[in-house]
């Protein structure tokens, strides 16, 4: 793995756990207003992209797996208080499972970049979204028994998801700028 390991294994564990909780809080918290819209939109599905583009592939994907595991054992952590193993048995469940690949792909692209700026993050998060569709669409296809129809039906998600890719990239870009040593961060301390 190209990601530097922190000297304390517990820090690795903590980042994974806290990011799983972060994705949960994105869903618990009422949505966020984007642009001029008066209806809050839920940004939980930007969580896996942020996990990948901020924590890196390995830890980002691990935190998504942990989050989905908690949902599966029955905790109501998905937006709107949904949860339980039923979340993995509906037609759109593939998109949920695809979050793992999203974080992995976004993290891999970010870690390959020499300088982490907005263009790289846009590319990484867009690729992460495509990765999610690569799992979600076939799953839907199996469910309804028709792959092309599944692909067609998934188009309705594209505009909303595109907005989230842009938002996640803008946010990650500012966070990377605020914490420049993020990817190689030893616990920084001033005191």
């Amino acid at each position: 793995m190209s990601e530097p390991r922190s000297p304390l294994p517990a820090v690795d564990l903590a980042r994974t756990v806290v990011f799983a909780a972060f994705i949960a809080v994105l869903g618990i918290f009422p949505g966020i207003y984007v642009g001029g819209s008066s209806v809050p939109i839920v940004i939980q599905n930007a969580g896996p992209l942020l996990a990948g583009s901020i924590l890196g592939a390995r830890r980002g994907a691990a935190s998504v797996v942990l989050f989905l595991g908690l949902v599966a054992i029955g905790l109501p952590l998905l937006s709107g208080g949904r949860g339980g193993i039923a979340s993995f048995s509906v037609p759109s469940s593939g998109f949920l499972i695809g979050w793992v690949l999203s974080a992995l792909v976004a993290g891999l692209i970010v870690s390959r970049a020499r300088r982490v700026g907005l263009p790289v993050l846009l590319l990484a998060n867009a690729a992460g979204l495509v990765a999610d569709y690569l799992i979600g669409i076939p799953f839907l296809g199996v469910y309804i028994g028709d792959l092309p129809a599944a692909a067609l039906q998934s188009l309705i998600f594209v505009p909303g998801d595109a907005v989230k890719v842009v938002a996640a990239s803008l946010i990650a870009a500012v966070v990377h700028r605020a914490l420049p040593d993020l990817s190689a961060r030893p616990a920084t301390r001033t005191g």
Partner: peptide
């Protein structure tokens, strides 16, 4: 929110 989340993660790790 994210920056404080990451700081919390580091403190929790310690």
């Amino acid at each position: 929110f994210l920056i404080r989340t990451l700081r919390h993660a580091d403190e929790l790790g310690e």
